[in-house]
Design a binder for these strands. Sequence first.
DNA 1: TATTGTGAAAGGGTTCACAGCG
DNA 2: CGCTGTGAACCCTTTCACAATA
Lengths: 215, 215
Amino acid sequence: MLLHRISDSAVRRLSHYLRFLDELEAGGSRTVSSDDLAAMGGMTSAQVRKDLSHFGSFGKRGLGYSVPVLREQVAAILGLARRWRVCLVGAGKLGAALYHYGGFHARGFDIVAVFDNDPVRIGLRWGSLRVNDVGDLARVVREERVELGIIVTPADAAQEVADALVGAGVEAILNFAPRKLSLPGEITLRDVNLAMELETLTFALTHRGEILTTR
Amino acid sequence: MLLHRISDSAVRRLSHYLRFLDELEAGGSRTVSSDDLAAMGGMTSAQVRKDLSHFGSFGKRGLGYSVPVLREQVAAILGLARRWRVCLVGAGKLGAALYHYGGFHARGFDIVAVFDNDPVRIGLRWGSLRVNDVGDLARVVREERVELGIIVTPADAAQEVADALVGAGVEAILNFAPRKLSLPGEITLRDVNLAMELETLTFALTHRGEILTTR
DNA sequence: TATTGTGAAAGGGTTCACAGCG
DNA sequence: CGCTGTGAACCCTTTCACAATA
């Protein structure tokens, strides 16, 4: 398929649609219209149709979309037609929270290795895994055929860990450390910064009373 | 001050600038140019200047910006000239991770209350706090003058908790539960969905080989 | 008839390029 | 001379509106 550039926000909306389609299927719905999906997500029906149209024609005019068919198509578009092998670097509280977060497994992400550099944590049993020494990262990542890395270390360690992950063949990184990482262009990177999320809230609250205009 | 509509991405860039300015100040730099800041964040200098220009003129032509002055200005723009009182609803692993995440306190966020509905967790000591019964949420939020709520509950409980927070006077909510919340328009809401972040990675990896074009 | 799929129009964000100024 | 601040140009995303069609 020939793709135009798909905006980041469009990809995130596709994730939303997938969640809505899961709920609809669980609720027994057989079809949805773009209007229904839009209502579930606070968007417009034109937006829903445009987002989907980049990848094909999945609906029937006059009828809408088949819930199970569209669910499967959207999952495939997002790369979720298969499972993904993920590792977690950093076995602190946030690492533990992510490890136990059921949403990853439900969406097709299998955490197959965990690493830390703290002797107190190395060797600990986490479910069916053991916490590995980060010094063994390259070997374990290769043995376990890890594809995605999640960095949950302090900021200081993040670049070093990222380099090790890339060296061991990981293709994409989700970085929770508040540090800008330098990576080769072929590696996909996404940053999540929890303090920054709160800052967008305080920005909004702080400027609430001011006149917002377009000049 | 008269503000235009500031885009979400511009606000996030301001958070980045603040982090860079912290680093520069810690490193002893006295001034920065928009070029320097742009290089630290992988953006363009025009973007940096445009972002700042929405809020005033903070630099000197020919010289750049004073690091401490700009740091303070950007912090003020983001609403971080004061501290904020935050509560956490959900004392599970993710709640614990956020509670212990030093980045919040460093940025001016004080977690002053924690809630859960599980008798096993209620009453547990977390640092200087105790985990409250979520049934006491309205009273405690008022007593503690909580301004921001963070929802870290399972999806099922999120709407109910959000309603309680709003009823008790919270002004903004950061929601980690994968559920679309309905809130009054005057409440600021931000969603963080961890599975969705991974999905943007798998989308990119899945479509990597395909020709991305503009028609 | 109801709803999709999509060109065209509108809107908004980013980049350009240079005037202004220390 | 160097770097900021900014209107104008450009580009990308969203919305509109309607032809196509089950």
